[in-house]
Simulated assay, not measured.
Amino acid sequence: MILAVTGGKGGVGKSTVAYNLGAALDAVVVDADLGMADLPAGRGPDLHDVLAGRAAAVEAVREGGPVDILPCGRSLAGARATDPRRLVAAVEAVERHYGTVVLDCPAGLGSDVGLPLLVAEASVLVTTPDEVALADAVRARALARELDAGLVAVALNRSGETPPTDRVARTFGAPVVAVPERAAVARGMANGLPAGRVECDAGEAFCELAGRVRSVSR
């Protein structure tokens, strides 16, 4: 299965959700943001190399950490050297080898978002309760629907003490999982540790999201 994590507005926590959802699903997380990579990286080939024809997709997957990742390069020169049209074949190759792929999509609604959604079979939408974020998420949902990346669930990130889950569920017509803001999650991301490893209630929310995904992939 190939799952896109998208959301429209930047800064809503898509990368955090993608990383933790990948951990809960035992999936490979692909950092598909070619211009502003945000997931942990390391030495070796990355997605820029794959899309420039310098490496095979499976060769670029980093194994052995808490989450398997296909990271993206962080240089402007690397991004310019890529052929984004190769993304679909690269992601499909990773899926064939590993089984489940989570795509961390870029912010916005441009063609760089369309390609990950095009290859995805389903999507999880990430938003905060902020009205601007919700408005952008509505547009992101429309794009996902147009590209047949059916909406599995909405991750209402940094949900606050009284999350508006019912209102958000009515807006998007999908189940909503409230993800509380916890400093432990941010510290874990900085050290490459998913929420399940730092033992906080946000980890339970990511497990619930994973359950929603599994229910549609059977």
Rank of each mutant, 00 (worst) to 15 (best):
G65F: 00
L34P: 06
G44Q: 08
A144E: 06
A135I: 06
E92H: 08
V30F: 06
R197I: 10
A190S: 14
L117F: 06
S123T: 08
L115H: 01
A122Y: 12
M36T: 14
A137T: 00
L151I: 07
R158L: 11
D38G: 12
L51S: 02
P116I: 03
S159Q: 10
L151T: 01
L3R: 01
P129S: 02
T165P: 09
C105K: 01
A81L: 07
V179L: 14
A135K: 12
D166T: 13
I69C: 07
N157R: 10
L76F: 11
V12G: 05
H48M: 00
L125H: 03
D166S: 13
P163T: 00
R85E: 15
V91R: 05
G53S: 09
A183K: 13
K9H: 13
V216W: 04
D112S: 12
E59P: 00
D33M: 05
E204S: 15
L118V: 09
L143M: 15
A18W: 09
A137W: 08
P175G: 12
D166F: 12
L125W: 03
T128G: 02
L3Q: 06
T100F: 08
V126F: 05
S215I: 05
L3N: 05
D112P: 00
R187M: 13
T16K: 09
E95N: 09
R170W: 12
S215A: 14
E181L: 14
V216D: 07
V28T: 07
V152N: 00
T162G: 11
V154S: 02
A107G: 14
